[in-house]
């Protein structure tokens, strides 16, 4: 049983939710996965298209009013055990959109956030470190 839980830890699949982000952080997330220099696949990660396949969820954006219900719905579709990573300053505090009438964030009012990766946008190294921390948390939950 211990062997199986050790093996299962090595396969965290990532899912991206865009909660009204300006796309800057999403470009950084794509960079983290796609270019040779910052390869997250070596940690066993894999971006998946469906929230139902995911283990670690990366949320970007300040949670705009229009997108709030959809984000919560997609978040609930992800099977447990899951770990949430807030990428960029927007989901943490609202960033440049702070106190705007159009946003409902910060995101931890609605979702349990496990790891914060601040930055506007964060560097790929920071995102990878955030994912590595999320994997540790996920291993304890699994």
């Amino acid at each position: 049983m211990d062997f199986f839980s050790k093996a299962a830890r090595k396969s965290p699949w990532l899912y991206r939710i865009n909660a009204g982000s300006c796309n800057g952080c999403d470009v950084e997330l794509a960079t983290t996965a796609c270019i040779p220099r910052y390869d997250v696949e070596r940690l066993g990660c894999q971006y998946c298209g469906s929230p139902k396949h995911a283990d670690i969820v990366l949320i970007t954006g300040p949670l705009t009013a229009r997108v709030k219900d959809k984000v919560l719905r997609v978040y609930n579709e992800i099977p447990d055990p899951k770990v949430t990573v807030a990428v960029g300053i927007c989901p943490i505090s609202g960033g440049v959109f702070r106190e705007s009438y159009a946003i409902e964030g910060p995101i931890d009012r609605y979702l349990p956030v496990d790891v914060n990766v601040p930055g506007c946008p964060p560097r790929p190294q920071a995102i990878i470190e955030g994912i590595a921390k999320a994997i540790e948390i996920w291993a304890k939950r699994a």
Binding site: F4, S5, A7, A8, R9, K10, S11, W13, P36, D39, E41, R42, G44, Q46, K52, D55, E77, P79, D80, A142
Partner: peptide, 23 residues
């Protein structure tokens, strides 16, 4: 020119999926 996952990564993925919840 990436490092890539370990060669037995598909086995890890399968074990992980077998332990997840079915929706």
């Amino acid at each position: 020119r990436r490092v890539g996952p370990p060669l037995i990564q598909p086995f890890y993925d399968l074990i992980k999926l077998m332990r997840k919840r079915t929706l």
